[in-house]
Design a protein around this nucleic acid. Structure first.
Lengths: 217, 217
DNA sequence: AGATGCAATAACGTATACGTTAAATTATTC
DNA sequence: GAATAATTTAACGTATACGTTATTGCATCT
C-alpha cells in the first residue's frame, strides 16, 4: 500500500473515531511526522479527504476537521435519503433471486440480537450493514460510493447520539417493513417505507442535537 | 489563483470540451510541460479530477480520460435523476416568493428562443441553466455540488448526441410542466413530472448511443 | 522466426529544497 | 502603556532530486 493510501486510511479512521476533535487544526508537517512520512503523500491524502467533505484545508493553519452544524446534518440526510430511496426503487426492479435479500435479513437479525443484548455499538454496526447492503442491491456503483461518503460524514454524529436516544426498537420495525415490501416485490411500498424511515431518523438526530445543545460535531 | 487551481480548471475544461479523447493517456510530465508548471500541482489537480470520476490515474501510463460506456451513463442518470427529483421536492417545500421561480422561467424562455433559432448549443446551455437553477432552489449545497459533478461526467455524451437527436420540443414541454407545478405549489406533481423528464432524457440518450453504436464516449 | 532473458530507460512515488508571504514577535514611537 | 512599525519566524505552494520498478527494446538461444 502506498504512503498516500496509508495516510488517507489512517487519517480517515482517526477522524471517524473522533480522535481529532472537530475544529482542531493540525499542520501538515505535524501529520507527516506523526505518520512517519514526508508532507507530499500527506498532502495528497488531505486533498481526497477534503473532496469528501471531512476536512478543510486552511493555508498556514493546516487541516481542520470539519465541524458539522445541525443544518449540515439536515443537508446530508436529505441527500442520503434521496439516494437510499432511489436504491430501494432500483433494488425492487431487479429480479428477485432466493438469496438476494439474505444480506438484509442477516443484518436485520443482527440488529435484533445486538439490541436484545443491549450492545448498542453492535446494533449501530448492523444498522450500517443493512444500509450498505440495501445500497449494494441497487447495482449502481456510483450510488453506493456517493452514499458511503455521506454516511461517513454523519458517522461521528450518529455515534455520539447513539447513547442519548431511546432504544431503536421502532427503527428495527421500519427496516423490517422495507425488507418485507422488497420480498413481496412491492417497490413502491418499500421506497415509501424507507423514505419514512430516513425521515424519522433525521428528525430524531436533529432533535437530539437540539435538545442536548450540540451545535457542531 | 494557485497553480493547482489553474491545472484543475484547465484540464477539466479540456476534458469537458473533448479536447483529450477518452481513453487517451497523457503522462504527468507532459501535462506539466504543457501547463508550464512542475508535476506537483498537476498531480494534486489530477487527484481531484480522479475523485470526480473524470480521469483514471494509471501508474506509468499517466492520466487517462475515463471513457463512459452506456452502463456508466445509465448509472449516472439514475443517480442524477434521484438527486434532481429530490431537489424539486425540496424546492416545492420552500416558501414561494414572487421571484423565486424567475430563474427557471428565464432559462425556459431562453430554451424556447434558442430552439426557434435552431441554436442547439444555446439550447443545451439554457437547458443546463434550468437544471442548475432547479437544483439551487433546493437550498441544499451538497445536493447541488454532487449533481454538478454527475452532470460534468455526462457532459461529453450530451454534446455528442445533441445533433443526433430530434429537436427537443418535448423536452421543453416537460420543463414547463415542472415549472407550472411548482408555481401551483404542487410538489408531488412537479416531482413526478421531473422524474418522467429525466427518465425520458436517459432513455433517449441511451437509445442514441445504442443506435449509433457509440460504445464509449 | 519466435521465445526468453537481460539491460536500458523512464515514469512514478516520495523526499527534500526553497522562495513567498502570512502570522507572530519585538522594537519603537507617541 | 497602547498603538504602530519593523523584524523574525515558519507554513505553505511549488520545484527539484532521487530511488524503485514496470516497461521496452535488444540480444541470445532454440
Amino acid at each position: 500500500m502506498s504512503y498516500v493510501q496509508q495516510a488517507y486510511r489512517t487519517l480517515k479512521d482517526r477522524i471517524l473515531a473522533n480522535r481529532y476533535p472537530p475544529g482542531q487544526q493540525i499542520l501538515e508537517q505535524a501529520l507527516a511526522d506523526d505518520l512517519g512520512m514526508s508532507r507530499t503523500p500527506v498532502r495528497e491524502a488531505l486533498i481526497r479527504l477534503h473532496d469528501e467533505g471531512l476536512v478543510e484545508l486552511i493555508p498556514r493553519r493546516g487541516m481542520r476537521v470539519v465541524p458539522l452544524a445541525p443544518e449540515d446534518m439536515q443537508e446530508i440526510y436529505e441527500v442520503l435519503s434521496a439516494l437510499e430511496v432511489a436504491a430501494v426503487e432500483l433494488a425492487a426492479r431487479r429480479p428477485l433471486e432466493p438469496d438476494t435479500l439474505q444480506p438484509l435479513e442477516d443484518a436485520l437479525q443482527a440488529m435484533e440480537t445486538r439490541l436484545a443484548d443491549d450492545d448498542l455499538d453492535g446494533w449501530a454496526r448492523a444498522d450500517a450493514r443493512f444500509h450498505r447492503a440495501l445500497l449494494a442491491l441497487s447495482g449502481n456503483r456510483r450510488l453506493v460510493a456517493m452514499a458511503a461518503t455521506l454516511a461517513d460524514q454523519v458517522h461521528r454524529a450518529r455515534m455520539t447520539t447513539l447513547r442519548l436516544r431511546p432504544r431503536p426498537v421502532k427503527s428495527i420495525e421500519e427496516h423490517r417493513e422495507v425488507l418485507e415490501a422488497l420480498r413481496a416485490g412491492d417497490g413502491e411500498r418499500a421506497a415509501g417505507a424507507h423514505r419514512r424511515h430516513r425521515h424519522n431518523a433525521a428528525r430524531l438526530l436533529l432533535d437530539l442535537l437540539n435538545y442536548y445543545r450540540l451545535p457542531h460535531l
